[in-house]
């Protein structure tokens, strides 16, 4: 049974990692804590839901649409809204992000009402047995693998391409990057776009596993936040390590203490990590 619990935790951790990836990227490069992150995940989930509902488009194929549409949404939100206050103190961007969250959530609420919906596909709950020892849900494994793949793609973009170098340069030293000819404004927009696109991908996978509704974003933002802090900023591996840690600890914790302690466990871990390694598990030393 313990094996099954740990597997549950690892698989959930994969989804957490993908959820937190975008938040970590935006936070690390632009120093913006994107409170609206969960709302973008919600939008990605609804994108998949409606494509499925009206066009019977397979949710896995709709990944292409949710990622690309969310990329453009993020790009333009940064370019025309967040860019206006990008030089202000962190507090202002925080409030702006909060405002965007409220706007998106309530807009979605008006459009789609508070109904709980679910993408219903035949293979949604398929599973296979691991030699009789544990049961592996197919979709969760898929989400886990996809999270790793998307993170790897991001890793390659950031480390091997010119765009990635300019993003990293901007994150490290804004003035030096600008002197070296990096178009900072464009880099910021692209980064935000990538971050929101990752949220869209997480939303698609979320909609396959869980019921969705317009107000679901808040909890997801909190979880992503915890994962980012635990994993540490400034590295692509951070969200993965953070996500897996949180997933396994939550699974074991709820197994021993009971389900209602889930959030208590998440935030205890957050506090513990902040005390022992204030910059996260992978974050550099002070």
């Amino acid at each position: 049974m313990l094996l099954q619990v740990i597997i549950n935790g690892i698989l959930k951790g994969g989804l957490y990692a993908l959820m937190a990836l975008g938040m970590s990227l935006i936070w690390g490069v632009m120093d913006i804590i994107n409170i609206a992150h969960g709302s973008f995940i919600m939008l990605g989930a609804f994108c998949t839901f409606w494509l499925f509902e009206y066009f019977k488009l397979d949710p896995i194929l709709s990944l292409v649409f949710s990622i690309s549409s969310m990329f453009f949404l993020g790009y333009f939100i940064q370019k025309y809204i967040i860019n206006l206050v990008i030089r202000a103190v962190i507090f202002i961007t925080l409030i702006l992000a909060f405002g965007i969250e409220i706007f998106i959530n309530n807009f979605a609420l008006v459009l789609w009402t508070a109904d709980v919906r679910k993408v219903q596909v035949p293979y949604g709950a398929a599973n296979f047995s691991l030699g009789g020892l544990a049961t592996i849900p197919f979709m969760r494994l898929f989400a886990f693998i996809l999270a790793i793949i998307i993170t790897t793609i991001f890793f390659i973009i950031l480390n091997k391409t010119k765009l990635g170098r300019s993003i990293r340069a901007t994150a490290q030293d804004l003035d030096a990057a600008r002197l070296a000819g990096v178009d900072v404004a464009k880099t910021y927009s692209l980064t935000f776009g990538f971050g929101v696109a990752a949220a869209g991908a997480a939303g698609t996978l979320w909609s396959l596993l869980f019921p969705i509704n317009p107000m679901m974003g808040g909890v997801l933002t909190l979880k992503s936040f915890v994962v980012v802090i635990i994993g540490g900023l400034g590295t692509m591996l951070g969200p993965i390590i953070g996500g897996l840690t949180l997933g396994v600890v939550e699974a074991l914790g709820t197994n021993w203490f009971g389900q209602s302690f889930e959030n208590l466990i998440s935030f205890s871990i957050l506090v513990l990590v902040l005390i022992i390694r204030p910059r996260g598990i992978l974050g550099g030393s002070e």
């Binding site: 619990v5 549950n8 869980f210 009971g258 389900q259 209602s260 959030n263």
Partner: peptide, 13 residues
Amino acid sequence: EKYSSENTDFTTM
């Protein structure tokens, strides 16, 4: 067993 009303993950239970 009691669970949180906001809970989305029931795998442990």
